[in-house]
């Protein structure tokens, strides 16, 4: 059997997720034993429409990108969204709750009209996808897990429980017990609570679990002294798109 052909694309995002693929180092060589990378603008000159698996980073933030995504969908039998921007809308969707006229003027002044933009959205809001690897950036082990499981013909284990599960297993001191607040209780696990492990808090980059207990969590945040506006901002950092759905 010939190796599946992989193409990697990016839309609005920081390309940190593609960097994680490069950062696989020796594991990337291992992966190249199973797949053939045929398009990867960030790392290679060649490009083609003949591929089986498309890996897409970044959000769709303007109408013109929808056509490109649809073309990718036509070429690929498997589309994997990587990173928060592609999987859940990500930090780009912070602007979804701002007044477009204001934020365009804020950045571009009187030239604002030149720029086409609409609400930042995940890839799945434009085309159907087979898998999403959330995270800002993606967890390299989880990315490998997803690729391996797809090659083995199974669906990946992307957890549907909150970060707290991993945080407790990692024996972290809860952010709330340190005078911080955190959106871990509603955020999808799978990153091994990496930010809390480094002494900070969960910012929500992996998006909401299915059916999150948002109201109960908001009460917790308010009980820890947050104003309603601060609660909303905590939720909007990464949940801007999901929260609207």
């Amino acid at each position: 059997m010939s190796k599946p052909r992989v193409a990697i694309f990016d839309f609005a995002g920081c390309e940190g997720d593609e960097l994680q693929i490069v950062n696989l180092e020796e594991s990337l060589l291992g992966l190249l034993g199973h797949v053939e990378v045929v398009t990867f603008r960030e790392a290679m000159k060649e490009r083609t429409d003949d591929y089986d698996i498309a890996i897409v980073e970044g959000s769709c933030t303007r109408p013109e990108d929808e056509e490109k995504l649809k073309h990718i969908r036509e070429c690929a039998s498997i589309v994997i969204a990587i990173g928060s921007c592609a999987a859940i809308g990500g930090i780009n969707s912070l602007k979804n709750h701002l007044d477009p006229a204001w934020y365009r003027a804020e950045v571009y002044g009187d030239k604002a009209d030149w720029f086409d933009t609409y609400k930042a959205r995940p890839i799945s809001a434009v085309i159907p996808i087979e898998a999403a690897v959330p995270g800002c950036p993606i967890d390299r082990d989880e990315f490998l897990h997803v690729v391996k499981t797809l090659l083995l013909g199974r669906t990946p284990d992307i957890p549907n429980y909150p970060i707290c599960v991993e945080c407790k297993k990692n024996e972290n001191v809860c952010a709330f017990d340190r005078g911080e607040v955190c959106v871990g209780p509603v955020t999808r696990a799978g990153c091994n609570s990496c930010c809390v492990n480094e002494g900070t808090k969960c910012w929500g980059c992996r998006g909401l679990i299915d059916d999150p207990e948002k109201n109960a969590h908001m009460e917790v945040l308010e009980a820890h002294g947050l104003t309603p506006d601060e609660v909303i901002k905590n939720f909007q950092t990464y949940f801007g798109w999901e929260g609207d759905q």
């Binding site: 839309f11 609005a12 970044g58 933030t61 303007r62 990108d65 930090i91 780009n92 912070l94 602007k95 701002l98 204001w102 934020y103 365009r104 804020e106 950045v107 571009y108 720029f115 933009t117 601060e230 901002k233 950092t237």
Partner: peptide, 16 residues
């Protein structure tokens, strides 16, 4: 694609 970071941080806390 433009991403509007300078606008997105307005109103956000120094901690973020």
């Amino acid at each position: 694609a433009p991403r509007f970071f300078e606008a997105m941080v307005v109103g956000r806390s120094y901690k973020e």
